[in-house]
């Protein structure tokens, strides 16, 4: 049975790869990589969902049926690493714009 959540993950990752492959603007490529990261995060979180579960926090919890905590912890790790990588890529984009005065990847070759 096809679940709509995993289809959404597939669409997000395909959209990100489309942006990386077909766009020429460096900032749009960085955005595409971020969208791929969002798709992976959504995949991890939806992998650990349990029917009728609540967040795994016991402070005033109404019940003890909870979703899986390990995928959520890994998603937190993945979000911070994605943030660091995005910041580094945007810094490289800023430096390349300072050198080329252009963000188009087709006008100048990277190894010129």
């Amino acid at each position: 049975m096809i679940s709509i959540h995993f289809v959404a993950v597939a669409l997000l990752i395909s959209l990100g790869i489309y942006a990386v492959v077909f766009r020429r603007n460096l900032i749009k490529i960085v955005m595409g990589i971020s969208v791929i990261g969002s798709g992976v995060n959504l995949f991890l979180v939806s992998l650990g969902y349990r029917e009728g579960g609540i967040a795994p926090i016991f402070t005033n919890a109404p019940q003890t049926a909870m979703v899986l905590p390990v995928p959520q912890a890994l998603t937190l790790t993945s979000i911070v690493i994605g943030l660091a990588v995005t910041a580094l890529m945007l810094s490289f984009t800023i430096m390349l714009y300072g050198h080329w005065k252009s963000l188009d990847t087709r006008k100048r070759r990277l190894l010129e």
């Binding site: 049975m1 096809i2 679940s3 959540h5 995993f6 289809v7 597939a10």
Partner: peptide, 18 residues
């Protein structure tokens, strides 16, 4: 690639029961 990714979701477990 899109077809492959969507086709893989058929083999995933049901959403909500890991």
């Amino acid at each position: 690639l899109l077809a492959m990714l969507v086709g893989t979701t058929v083999y995933m477990h049901d959403f909500g029961s890991p």
